[in-house]
Nucleic acid binder design. Sequence first.
DNA 1: ACCTGAACACCGTTCAAGT
DNA 2: ACCTGAACACCGTTCAAGT
Lengths: 228, 228
Amino acid sequence: MPSPKRQRKPAPRRQLTVPAILDAALKLVDNEGLDALTMRRLADELDASPMSLYRYIRTRDEIVEGLADLALEQLDIQPPADLTWQEQLRQIFTGIHDVLLAHPGLIHILEHQPVTAEHAFTAVERLLAILRKAGFSGSDAVATIAALESYTFGFTLQQRARAGTDQHDHLTRLQHLPPDQFPNTVELANEFGTWASETHFAHGLQRLLTGIQHDLSHSTTPVRAHVS
Amino acid sequence: MPSPKRQRKPAPRRQLTVPAILDAALKLVDNEGLDALTMRRLADELDASPMSLYRYIRTRDEIVEGLADLALEQLDIQPPADLTWQEQLRQIFTGIHDVLLAHPGLIHILEHQPVTAEHAFTAVERLLAILRKAGFSGSDAVATIAALESYTFGFTLQQRARAGTDQHDHLTRLQHLPPDQFPNTVELANEFGTWASETHFAHGLQRLLTGIQHDLSHSTTPVRAHVS
DNA sequence: ACCTGAACACCGTTCAAGT
DNA sequence: ACCTGAACACCGTTCAAGT
């Protein structure tokens, strides 16, 4: 005796939405890497057929783009304004580094399609503001951002690549190189155990900032500078 | 009247060899990107069946590893010994940058599997020698190499990503951001036309070297330094 | 409107078979 | 010894069809 109102559908069947799809995709990419993001795997995760996703996104690449934006949302870049510009930059790029590490797949996304995401623009705007206020010329500010971004990006990439390898193997391999051809490498093999560590990141970032500051304070001020 | 010696085989059919396979693979990757490196495509290029390649290599990944080594061979890093260490480092990392640009696919290979290739070791050894001679401690030398490599790597990656996008589109998009939210970005939109240019690379590298030098000359000398 | 199964043109790789 | 075709378990995506 079936009641007229009984509902036999397996569950209220949560609606598919773009955010739900992106959430599932980010989880997949963080846990298993960008390669694991297949339409079929993703659909499985959402208890749907691969084709149903195409109602919401046009192509797999569109999902990938969306992921970049999603992860960059976490970049809430507002260092205290009373810090020196060096310290503000240091905090911002350390924050970027942290987000990149937290989402292991993100870095492989950003390298293929340069950051056109909305949230990237707000970060750039804030960086420009800090640098202009510190006295950088417009073109110098842009060059400076490019340098800091390159360093942060490249470093995190090395860190990621390193994480995927057997560290012990690598060190013993270094130790057993022919000492006549590789005297320094063999002697310093142990030092490579800390290669691309967090300490290295902070140290290098600091050095880059030092160089930038040195450059700024020793260049002729743009105010009525004469070409000699 | 067939002569007993006549050979009817369609051509001497050049033998497949590992170097031949790698050469074809590198050509493919340089021209069409890492994704174009398919066993089937590669076999086509060599006028063979996909399966024949498996006589010489165990897996596609093995080809990719081989490519890294192949491209790094071109790194003939011997700057004149009478230059300052800064200048020697500058030349070496500019050289690395050039090789990475010359083989657009290489960078996407190196990021996934950290450089364990034979030729990478000789570059590291030379860098260590230069830095030790300049007075760097062992651990500092390693940190310094990591920083310079990160910068070079990250910069080239941005340059590559940039190359794949419509530059004009990007600039006009920057120009038309809401000026109240993005005043600096809009004002400096034109400056982004030179983003990740060769000039930027040289400038940033120089600044990083300046920071490294500054650090070195201001740190306590390792000779009988007291901990205060 | 929303979802789906079958199909197409691709992958890397295994296996048993050809010369 | 060297090469190969068929097959397996995957891809992204199109298309016509289901409710």
